[in-house]
Design a protein around this nucleic acid. Sequence first.
DNA 1: GACATGACGGCAG
DNA 2: CCTGCCGCCATGT
Length: 118
Amino acid sequence: MKNHKKNTKKPIRNFFEDVYEVVRLVPKGRVTTYGAVARYLGTAMSARMVGWAMNGAHSEKNIPAHRVVNSQGLLTGKHHFRTPIAMQKALEKEGTKVSHDKVVEFQKLFWDPAAELL
DNA sequence: GACATGACGGCAG
DNA sequence: CCTGCCGCCATGT
């Protein structure tokens, strides 16, 4: 029999789900990074996948993707929002200061799931 | 099936 | 300080 079912045992769904959950748990006024989330999920070296997961986050409007920035605290993904300023606006609205597409005192507002949820 | 791309990160030069 | 390269996984062509 042609079982070319390809074993769709890919727990990717789990990966995405985890990303959504973690991002959703990010406290208001705080920010996290792709690398931190990736590390928490076990894909430390594949921070890219986290960003990819955010792509699906658009379906889940409950995902505060604006609280997720890169390791430099830069709003690299702002171009994927409804408008390139939506991300900054959302952050400022929550009390997070943003200057030149970068989170002010990002290190201080940094929220590491691997450490906070430990 | 192979190649190229992508919301990243870290290291080397 | 800046530029370039690799790694990692999934998706699209």
